[in-house]
Simulated scan of single mutants.
Amino acid sequence: MATDTTTTTTTTTTTGSPSLLERLNRDGFVLIPKAVSGDTFARLRDAATAATSMAREGRWRDVRTLPKQFPPWNTSGPNPTADGIWGVQGVMHPDMPGRDEFVHMYFSDAIIEPTLELLQCERDDLVLELFNMLIRPTKDFELRWHRDDIPATATAEEELERLGKPAFSAQWNFALFDDSSLVIVPGSHRRARTDAERAAGPFEKTLPGQLVVQMHPGDIVFYNNNILHRGVYDSKVERMTLHGSAGHLNGASLRARNVLQHGLRDWIDRLSFDALDEQQRALAEHMRSNLIKMAGDASDVGYSLSG
Protein backbone atom coordinates (compact mmCIF):
# COMPACT_ATOMS: atom_id res chain seq x y z
CA MET A 1 0.00 0.00 0.00
CA ALA A 2 1.34 3.39 -0.97
CA THR A 3 1.94 6.05 1.65
CA ASP A 4 -1.10 8.32 2.07
CA THR A 5 -0.10 11.54 0.36
CA THR A 6 -3.56 12.73 -0.62
CA THR A 7 -3.93 16.50 -0.82
CA THR A 8 -6.69 18.81 -2.00
CA THR A 9 -6.14 21.59 -4.51
CA THR A 10 -7.75 24.97 -4.89
CA THR A 11 -5.41 26.07 -7.69
CA THR A 12 -6.60 29.25 -9.40
CA THR A 13 -5.81 31.04 -12.61
CA THR A 14 -7.28 33.76 -14.79
CA THR A 15 -8.98 32.91 -18.06
CA GLY A 16 -6.81 34.14 -20.95
CA SER A 17 -3.71 34.42 -18.75
CA PRO A 18 -0.45 33.26 -20.37
CA SER A 19 0.02 30.93 -17.40
CA LEU A 20 -3.03 28.84 -18.31
CA LEU A 21 -1.16 26.73 -20.87
CA GLU A 22 1.99 26.68 -18.75
CA ARG A 23 0.08 25.24 -15.80
CA LEU A 24 -1.63 22.63 -17.93
CA ASN A 25 1.70 21.57 -19.45
CA ARG A 26 3.36 21.42 -16.03
CA ASP A 27 0.63 19.82 -13.93
CA GLY A 28 -1.72 18.22 -16.46
CA PHE A 29 -4.70 20.25 -15.20
CA VAL A 30 -5.76 23.82 -14.47
CA LEU A 31 -8.72 25.00 -12.38
CA ILE A 32 -10.68 28.14 -13.33
CA PRO A 33 -12.88 29.23 -10.41
CA LYS A 34 -16.35 30.74 -10.86
CA ALA A 35 -16.15 30.57 -14.65
CA VAL A 36 -19.96 30.64 -14.87
CA SER A 37 -22.32 32.32 -12.40
CA GLY A 38 -25.61 34.21 -12.07
CA ASP A 39 -28.62 33.47 -14.27
CA THR A 40 -26.55 31.43 -16.72
CA PHE A 41 -25.46 29.10 -13.96
CA ALA A 42 -29.00 28.85 -12.55
CA ARG A 43 -30.44 27.91 -15.94
CA LEU A 44 -27.76 25.29 -16.46
CA ARG A 45 -28.40 23.70 -13.09
CA ASP A 46 -32.14 23.63 -13.76
CA ALA A 47 -31.56 21.92 -17.12
CA ALA A 48 -29.11 19.47 -15.56
CA THR A 49 -31.51 18.65 -12.72
CA ALA A 50 -34.30 17.90 -15.20
CA ALA A 51 -32.02 15.73 -17.34
CA THR A 52 -30.78 13.84 -14.29
CA SER A 53 -34.30 13.16 -13.05
CA MET A 54 -35.36 11.95 -16.48
CA ALA A 55 -32.39 9.58 -16.68
CA ARG A 56 -32.85 8.22 -13.14
CA GLU A 57 -36.51 7.51 -13.93
CA GLY A 58 -35.55 5.54 -17.04
CA ARG A 59 -36.90 8.10 -19.51
CA TRP A 60 -33.44 8.76 -21.06
CA ARG A 61 -31.73 5.58 -22.19
CA ASP A 62 -28.32 6.95 -23.15
CA VAL A 63 -26.73 6.62 -19.72
CA ARG A 64 -23.62 5.30 -17.98
CA THR A 65 -24.74 2.21 -16.08
CA LEU A 66 -23.31 0.78 -12.88
CA PRO A 67 -20.94 -0.91 -12.35
CA LYS A 68 -19.36 -0.41 -15.78
CA GLN A 69 -16.60 2.18 -16.17
CA PHE A 70 -16.13 2.42 -19.94
CA PRO A 71 -18.41 2.22 -23.01
CA PRO A 72 -20.36 0.43 -24.26
CA TRP A 73 -22.77 0.67 -21.33
CA ASN A 74 -25.60 -1.80 -20.77
CA THR A 75 -28.49 0.22 -22.21
CA SER A 76 -30.19 -2.28 -24.52
CA GLY A 77 -32.35 -4.14 -21.96
CA PRO A 78 -35.89 -3.26 -20.93
CA ASN A 79 -34.70 -1.35 -17.84
CA PRO A 80 -31.13 -0.04 -18.30
CA THR A 81 -31.27 1.92 -15.02
CA ALA A 82 -32.15 -1.13 -12.87
CA ASP A 83 -28.63 -1.35 -11.39
CA GLY A 84 -28.22 2.40 -11.16
CA ILE A 85 -26.48 5.00 -13.32
CA TRP A 86 -23.58 7.39 -12.86
CA GLY A 87 -23.79 9.50 -16.01
CA VAL A 88 -26.11 11.02 -18.60
CA GLN A 89 -24.82 10.92 -22.16
CA GLY A 90 -25.45 13.34 -25.02
CA VAL A 91 -26.83 16.36 -23.21
CA MET A 92 -26.88 18.31 -26.52
CA HIS A 93 -28.87 15.52 -28.23
CA PRO A 94 -31.79 16.98 -30.25
CA ASP A 95 -34.26 14.99 -28.12
CA MET A 96 -32.87 16.20 -24.77
CA PRO A 97 -35.14 18.72 -22.98
CA GLY A 98 -33.14 21.78 -22.00
CA ARG A 99 -30.56 21.09 -24.69
CA ASP A 100 -30.36 24.79 -25.64
CA GLU A 101 -28.80 25.59 -22.26
CA PHE A 102 -26.18 22.89 -22.79
CA VAL A 103 -25.51 24.09 -26.35
CA HIS A 104 -25.02 27.65 -25.04
CA MET A 105 -22.56 26.34 -22.46
CA TYR A 106 -20.50 24.28 -24.89
CA PHE A 107 -19.98 27.21 -27.29
CA SER A 108 -19.65 29.90 -24.61
CA ASP A 109 -16.53 31.99 -24.05
CA ALA A 110 -16.06 30.17 -20.72
CA ILE A 111 -15.26 27.02 -22.72
CA ILE A 112 -14.03 28.23 -26.11
CA GLU A 113 -11.50 30.85 -24.97
CA PRO A 114 -9.52 28.55 -22.64
CA THR A 115 -9.73 25.80 -25.28
CA LEU A 116 -8.16 28.05 -27.90
CA GLU A 117 -5.33 28.93 -25.54
CA LEU A 118 -4.71 25.38 -24.38
CA LEU A 119 -4.73 23.96 -27.91
CA GLN A 120 -2.82 26.96 -29.31
CA CYS A 121 -5.11 27.09 -32.32
CA GLU A 122 -7.63 29.17 -34.24
CA ARG A 123 -11.41 28.72 -34.17
CA ASP A 124 -11.33 27.08 -37.60
CA ASP A 125 -9.17 24.29 -36.14
CA LEU A 126 -11.74 23.23 -33.52
CA VAL A 127 -13.70 19.98 -33.71
CA LEU A 128 -16.96 19.41 -31.85
CA GLU A 129 -16.45 16.48 -29.47
CA LEU A 130 -18.17 15.25 -26.31
CA PHE A 131 -20.64 16.78 -23.88
CA ASN A 132 -22.04 14.50 -21.18
CA MET A 133 -22.85 14.75 -17.47
CA LEU A 134 -21.50 12.81 -14.50
CA ILE A 135 -24.00 12.39 -11.65
CA ARG A 136 -24.36 10.96 -8.16
CA PRO A 137 -24.69 7.17 -8.39
CA THR A 138 -27.30 5.25 -6.43
CA LYS A 139 -24.51 3.34 -4.68
CA ASP A 140 -20.90 4.26 -3.93
CA PHE A 141 -18.81 3.75 -7.05
CA GLU A 142 -15.15 4.14 -7.93
CA LEU A 143 -13.29 4.21 -11.23
CA ARG A 144 -9.97 2.47 -11.46
CA TRP A 145 -6.77 4.35 -12.20
CA HIS A 146 -6.53 4.96 -15.93
CA ARG A 147 -5.54 7.17 -18.82
CA ASP A 148 -8.47 7.78 -21.17
CA ASP A 149 -6.80 6.64 -24.39
CA ILE A 150 -3.92 4.45 -23.22
CA PRO A 151 -4.69 0.94 -21.90
CA ALA A 152 -3.30 -0.24 -18.57
CA THR A 153 -1.49 -3.03 -20.47
CA ALA A 154 0.68 -0.51 -22.34
CA THR A 155 4.43 -0.81 -21.83
CA ALA A 156 6.45 2.19 -20.71
CA GLU A 157 7.64 2.62 -24.30
CA GLU A 158 4.06 2.55 -25.61
CA GLU A 159 2.97 5.07 -23.00
CA LEU A 160 5.81 7.44 -23.88
CA GLU A 161 5.10 7.11 -27.58
CA ARG A 162 1.48 8.23 -27.11
CA LEU A 163 2.26 10.84 -24.45
CA GLY A 164 4.90 12.33 -26.73
CA LYS A 165 2.21 13.38 -29.20
CA PRO A 166 0.16 16.55 -28.76
CA ALA A 167 -3.04 16.04 -26.80
CA PHE A 168 -5.15 17.49 -29.66
CA SER A 169 -8.06 17.94 -27.26
CA ALA A 170 -9.12 20.07 -24.32
CA GLN A 171 -11.17 18.09 -21.80
CA TRP A 172 -13.01 19.68 -18.90
CA ASN A 173 -15.36 19.19 -15.95
CA PHE A 174 -17.81 21.93 -14.95
CA ALA A 175 -19.27 21.59 -11.44
CA LEU A 176 -22.91 22.38 -10.71
CA PHE A 177 -22.49 21.24 -7.07
CA ASP A 178 -19.44 20.91 -4.85
CA ASP A 179 -17.36 18.13 -6.36
CA SER A 180 -14.28 16.34 -5.03
CA SER A 181 -14.62 13.25 -7.21
CA LEU A 182 -11.62 13.71 -9.53
CA VAL A 183 -8.32 12.31 -8.25
CA ILE A 184 -5.19 12.85 -10.34
CA VAL A 185 -1.42 12.43 -10.23
CA PRO A 186 -0.04 15.81 -11.32
CA GLY A 187 2.66 15.60 -13.97
CA SER A 188 1.86 12.00 -14.93
CA HIS A 189 0.75 13.17 -18.39
CA ARG A 190 4.43 13.77 -19.23
CA ARG A 191 5.88 10.40 -18.26
CA ALA A 192 5.35 6.66 -18.17
CA ARG A 193 3.99 5.13 -14.98
CA THR A 194 6.47 4.61 -12.17
CA ASP A 195 7.16 1.13 -10.76
CA ALA A 196 4.90 1.97 -7.78
CA GLU A 197 2.06 3.02 -10.09
CA ARG A 198 2.38 -0.13 -12.18
CA ALA A 199 2.40 -2.31 -9.08
CA ALA A 200 -0.59 -0.58 -7.50
CA GLY A 201 -4.03 -2.15 -7.61
CA PRO A 202 -6.53 -0.61 -10.04
CA PHE A 203 -8.54 0.84 -7.12
CA GLU A 204 -5.54 1.80 -4.96
CA LYS A 205 -6.77 4.40 -2.46
CA THR A 206 -3.64 6.51 -2.65
CA LEU A 207 -0.72 6.87 -5.02
CA PRO A 208 2.39 8.93 -4.25
CA GLY A 209 1.75 12.56 -5.09
CA GLN A 210 -1.94 12.14 -5.88
CA LEU A 211 -4.23 15.12 -5.54
CA VAL A 212 -7.99 15.52 -5.06
CA VAL A 213 -9.37 18.32 -7.23
CA GLN A 214 -11.84 20.29 -5.10
CA MET A 215 -14.42 22.10 -7.20
CA HIS A 216 -17.19 24.48 -6.19
CA PRO A 217 -20.33 25.36 -8.18
CA GLY A 218 -19.36 27.27 -11.32
CA ASP A 219 -15.73 26.05 -11.38
CA ILE A 220 -14.22 24.45 -14.47
CA VAL A 221 -11.16 22.20 -14.49
CA PHE A 222 -9.40 21.52 -17.77
CA TYR A 223 -7.16 18.46 -17.76
CA ASN A 224 -5.10 16.28 -20.07
CA ASN A 225 -7.19 13.16 -20.56
CA ASN A 226 -4.09 10.97 -20.47
CA ILE A 227 -3.07 12.14 -17.02
CA LEU A 228 -3.23 9.23 -14.56
CA HIS A 229 -6.57 9.71 -12.84
CA ARG A 230 -9.62 8.07 -11.32
CA GLY A 231 -13.07 9.01 -10.00
CA VAL A 232 -14.52 8.39 -6.52
CA TYR A 233 -18.30 8.89 -6.34
CA ASP A 234 -20.19 9.16 -3.07
CA SER A 235 -23.85 8.10 -3.33
CA LYS A 236 -24.76 10.35 -0.38
CA VAL A 237 -23.51 13.59 -1.96
CA GLU A 238 -25.39 15.20 -4.85
CA ARG A 239 -23.32 15.52 -7.97
CA MET A 240 -24.02 16.99 -11.40
CA THR A 241 -20.82 17.77 -13.26
CA LEU A 242 -20.87 18.56 -16.96
CA HIS A 243 -18.08 16.73 -18.74
CA GLY A 244 -16.95 17.75 -22.21
CA SER A 245 -14.14 18.12 -24.69
CA ALA A 246 -13.25 19.90 -27.92
CA GLY A 247 -10.61 18.73 -30.35
CA HIS A 248 -8.04 20.03 -32.81
CA LEU A 249 -8.48 19.19 -36.49
CA ASN A 250 -4.92 17.88 -36.74
CA GLY A 251 -5.69 15.20 -34.16
CA ALA A 252 -8.66 13.63 -35.95
CA SER A 253 -7.03 10.23 -36.45
CA LEU A 254 -5.94 10.08 -32.79
CA ARG A 255 -9.24 11.38 -31.39
CA ALA A 256 -11.70 9.45 -33.57
CA ARG A 257 -11.98 6.39 -31.34
CA ASN A 258 -12.11 8.32 -28.08
CA VAL A 259 -14.94 10.53 -29.39
CA LEU A 260 -16.98 8.29 -31.69
CA GLN A 261 -17.21 5.43 -29.16
CA HIS A 262 -19.84 7.59 -27.43
CA GLY A 263 -22.29 7.33 -30.34
CA LEU A 264 -22.27 10.92 -31.61
CA ARG A 265 -22.47 10.02 -35.28
CA ASP A 266 -25.96 8.60 -34.73
CA TRP A 267 -27.44 12.07 -34.12
CA ILE A 268 -24.93 14.86 -34.64
CA ASP A 269 -26.40 15.83 -38.03
CA ARG A 270 -29.75 16.61 -36.32
CA LEU A 271 -28.28 18.88 -33.63
CA SER A 272 -29.79 22.37 -33.80
CA PHE A 273 -27.80 25.54 -33.15
CA ASP A 274 -30.78 27.90 -33.56
CA ALA A 275 -30.46 29.13 -29.97
CA LEU A 276 -27.00 30.59 -30.62
CA ASP A 277 -26.17 34.04 -31.92
CA GLU A 278 -24.80 34.41 -35.45
CA GLN A 279 -21.11 34.25 -34.50
CA GLN A 280 -21.55 31.27 -32.18
CA ARG A 281 -23.73 29.48 -34.72
CA ALA A 282 -21.06 29.85 -37.42
CA LEU A 283 -18.47 28.37 -35.06
CA ALA A 284 -20.80 25.54 -34.04
CA GLU A 285 -21.60 24.62 -37.64
CA HIS A 286 -17.91 24.62 -38.52
CA MET A 287 -16.99 22.46 -35.53
CA ARG A 288 -19.77 20.03 -36.41
CA SER A 289 -18.62 19.80 -40.04
CA ASN A 290 -15.13 18.94 -38.79
CA LEU A 291 -16.61 16.20 -36.59
CA ILE A 292 -18.73 14.81 -39.44
CA LYS A 293 -15.64 14.68 -41.65
CA MET A 294 -13.76 12.84 -38.90
CA ALA A 295 -16.64 10.38 -38.53
CA GLY A 296 -16.78 9.83 -42.28
CA ASP A 297 -13.06 9.13 -42.47
CA ALA A 298 -13.20 6.67 -39.56
CA SER A 299 -14.37 3.08 -39.98
CA ASP A 300 -15.23 0.81 -37.04
CA VAL A 301 -13.26 2.64 -34.36
CA GLY A 302 -14.15 0.28 -31.47
CA TYR A 303 -13.50 1.34 -27.88
CA SER A 304 -10.51 2.95 -26.21
CA LEU A 305 -10.62 0.89 -22.99
CA SER A 306 -12.53 -2.08 -21.66
CA GLY A 307 -14.28 -2.72 -18.39
Score class of each variant (00 low, 15 high):
Ala2Met: 14
Asp4Thr: 07
Thr5Trp: 03
Thr5Asn: 11
Thr11Leu: 15
Thr12Cys: 15
Thr12Phe: 09
Thr14Phe: 13
Thr14Ile: 15
Thr15Arg: 14
Gly16Lys: 09
Gly16Ser: 12
Ser17Asn: 14
Glu22Tyr: 06
Val30Pro: 09
Thr40Tyr: 13
Arg45Ala: 05
Asp46Ser: 12
Ala47Asp: 08
Ala48Glu: 08
Glu57Lys: 12
Glu57Cys: 00
Val63Phe: 06
Arg64Gln: 12
Phe70Ala: 06
Pro72Arg: 02
Trp73Met: 04
Trp73Asn: 07
Thr75Gln: 05
Ser76Lys: 12
Gly77His: 11
Asp83Phe: 00
Asp83Val: 00
Gly87Tyr: 04
Val88Phe: 05
Gly90Arg: 12
Pro94Ala: 07
Pro94Ser: 04
Pro94Asn: 09
Asp100Trp: 01
Asp100Met: 06
Asp100Asn: 13
Glu101Met: 02
Val103Phe: 03
Ser108Tyr: 03
Asp109Arg: 15
Asp109Gly: 13
Pro114Thr: 01
Thr115Trp: 07
Gln120Cys: 15
Glu122Leu: 10
Asp124Asn: 09
Ile135Ser: 09
Asp140His: 00
Glu142Val: 08
Leu143Ala: 14
Asp148Pro: 04
Asp148Thr: 06
Ile150Asp: 03
Ala152Leu: 06
Ala156Leu: 02
Leu160Ser: 03
Glu161Val: 07
Arg162Gln: 12
Leu163Phe: 04
Leu163Trp: 04
Leu163Ile: 06
Gly164Phe: 03
Lys165Asn: 08
Ala170Gln: 03
Gln171Ala: 12
Phe177Met: 04
Leu182Ser: 01
Val185His: 08
Val185Gln: 10
His189Thr: 10
Ala196Cys: 04
Ala196Thr: 11
Ala200Val: 03
Glu204Pro: 10
Pro208Ser: 05
Gln210Trp: 08
Val212Ile: 15
Pro217Ala: 10
Ile220Pro: 00
Val221Phe: 07
Asp234His: 01
Lys236Ile: 09
Val237Leu: 13
Glu238Ala: 01
Arg239Glu: 08
Leu242Glu: 03
Ser245Lys: 08
Ala246Gln: 08
Gly251Tyr: 05
Ala252Tyr: 01
Leu254His: 12
Arg255Asn: 13
Val259His: 00
Leu260Ala: 06
Gln261Lys: 01
Gln280Val: 06
Glu285Leu: 12
Met287Glu: 07
Ser289Tyr: 09
Ser289Ala: 15
Ile292Leu: 14
Ala295Met: 04
Gly296Asn: 12
Asp297Thr: 00
Asp300His: 08
Tyr303Gly: 06
Leu305Ala: 07
Ser306Glu: 11
